Simulated scan of single mutants.
Amino acid sequence: MLKITRLILKVLLFVGISTFAQEKINVDDIKFVEFLEDSLKNELINEKTRNVFFKTSRTYWKNRKLDYNLHPEKYEKAMSLFHKNQQKYKRSIHKVNTKRKNRIENAVKNFQNFDDRNTFSKNSILFVGSSSIAGWKTSISFPEFSIINRGIGGMNMHEIINYYDTLIKKHTPSIVAIYCDIDVEQGKVPEEAVSAFKKLVNKIKSDFPKTHILLLSMKPVMVDDFIGENIRKNKMITNTQLLDYSKKEKNVHFIDLASPMLFSDGKLKTAVFIADGMHLNELGYSIWNPIIRNKLIELTN
Rank of each mutant, 00 (worst) to 15 (best):
T59M: 04
L81V: 14
D116N: 15
K122D: 13
K122H: 08
F114V: 00
W61A: 09
E76I: 07
S131Y: 15
S80W: 11
H83F: 13
N118T: 05
H71F: 15
S57A: 14
E73M: 03
I125N: 06
I133A: 06
N85M: 01
D116A: 15
N106K: 14
I125T: 12
F145H: 12
L70G: 02
S139P: 00
W61Q: 05
F120E: 00
N102V: 12
K84M: 14
S57Y: 04
I104V: 03
W136K: 00
T138L: 05
T119Q: 08
R150C: 01
R58W: 10
L126Q: 02
R117I: 06
N123G: 11
N63M: 08
S132H: 00
E105F: 13
S124L: 08
I133L: 04
S124Q: 03
N110Y: 10
N118A: 01
R100K: 07
K99C: 15
F111C: 00
K101F: 09
S130C: 01
D116G: 10
I152A: 08
V128I: 01
S139L: 05
R150A: 04
E76A: 09
D116T: 08
K77S: 10
A78H: 07
T119Y: 07
L70S: 11
T56P: 03
K62Q: 14
S80Q: 12
K77E: 12
H71M: 07
S146M: 09
A78V: 13
K109N: 14
Q112S: 13
R64W: 15
S130K: 00
G151M: 09
K74N: 12
K88E: 08
E144V: 05
N149R: 13
N63L: 11
W61P: 01
L66D: 11
K55Q: 11
H71S: 12
